[in-house]
């Protein structure tokens, strides 16, 4: 990561050159550059950066609205949610006074919108229609990623620095239980059958499988150094797991056997991921390398490395695989 001033100057120059020389694009990928406060727009056909939009201060995660008509960018240092058109990458609107949103998610029943404040140890619950604050809980320490059960009864939050998963009851708006897990839990997802939570534990280098109804860990699956995040392949069975170190990798977790079945070398600190609808490509932001990496899932090789901005975090395209 370079100094903000230098970064902006260099990137303005780079993106101007790119925009002037790149043809029109078909599909669009959006990558958040969290240290630059921008989004890079990438043509998914040519793999070229075709534009850059200014977003806000420290955008970390993004989330499509349930109907995919907007892409919500959570701007932690601006206290805003910025809505982008996922087809054009242009800004649609802003919601202000959302305090320090880091990670974000809609409950499956679309009733609740939940944000975590990683830096300030807090979880906020908003009415998803009106964006009015309905619940707030102190969540020490370092609430990071979140997942819901299918009935929208709970939101489960990883607490990175207290090595726990918190179950927050959305009916009572109170934490119901805390479960100790491996060191530095980050990414968390619900299994396709709504039975297990899968938690990526960075410090432990494994994925922890939790029977959330029984509140116990049933298995740990070693994944690699700095196991950080999870993304469904879209086939209802397999999940990609990113190991976020400079010399990093992404592995494939089979949820039927609860074992790792494939491994791809993805350097640069792979973090958030997105899978193409046809299942042929996996895209991942490389946090430490200022790049978005593309893995060909047929050959299992890294085939593209696209230069973007500093500390790229969230990535999204409309033509994505299912979320289970």
């Amino acid at each position: 990561m370079l100094s903000t001033f230098t970064r902006h100057a260099l990137q303005t120059l780079c993106s101007t050159i790119v925009v002037l020389t790149t043809p029109a694009h078909a599909g669009l990928a959006v990558a958040l550059n969290s240290a630059d406060g921008t989004v890079s727009l990438i043509d998914t056909t040519t793999y070229q950066v075709v534009g850059k939009e200014i977003a806000c201060k420290e955008p970390h995660h993004l989330l499509p609205t349930p109907d995919d008509s907007s892409l919500i960018v959570a701007c932690s240092a601006s206290n805003q949610l910025v809505f982008f058109d996922p087809k054009t990458g242009k800004e649609q609107r802003r919601i202000r006074d959302i305090s320090d949103p880091y990670q974000l998610g809609f409950s499956p029943d679309r009733k609740w919108f939940v944000t975590t404040s990683l830096r300030l140890d807090r979880v906020d619950v908003y009415d998803a229609q009106t964006m009015q604050l309905k619940g707030r809980v102190h969540a020490p320490r370092t609430p990071s990623h979140l997942a819901f059960d299918d009935d929208s009864r709970y939101v489960f939050v990883t607490l990175q620095d207290s090595n726990e998963v918190m179950a927050f009851n959305l009916a009572t708006m109170r934490p119901e239980w805390f479960l100790p897990v491996g060191a530095t839990p980050a990414g968390i997802l619900m299994s396709p059958d709504n039975r297990y939570l899968m938690v990526a534990c960075m410090g432990a280098g494994h994925v922890e499988i939790i029977d959330w109804r029984e509140q116990k860990t049933v298995k740990t699956v070693p994944a690699g150094t700095a196991t950080h995040n999870l993304q469904p392949r879209g086939d209802g069975r397999h999940y990609f797991v990113s190991n976020r170190s400079m010399n990093g990798s992404i592995v494939l977790l089979d949820t039927q056997t609860m074992s790792i079945t494939e491994r791809y070398d993805v350097p640069g600190g792979p973090d958030d991921m997105e899978v193409r609808a046809d299942g042929k490509e996996l895209w991942a932001t490389a946090r430490f390398a200022r790049r978005v990496q593309v893995v060909d899932l047929t050959t299992k090789q890294l085939v593209r490395s696209i230069p973007v901005g500093s500390s790229p975090h969230g990535v999204f395209f409309l033509d994505h695989a299912g979320r289970r």
Binding site: M1, Q160, G203, G268, G269, F288
Partner: peptide, 23 residues
């Protein structure tokens, strides 16, 4: 960023992870 990442991976990240300071 290659040098920065190498320094992180080689000298900084291992002790942080070992001490439970991955955040």
């Amino acid at each position: 960023v290659t040098v920065q990442g190498w320094l992180l991976d080689t000298l900084v990240q291992p002790p942080l992870l070992a001490l439970g300071l991955g955040s």
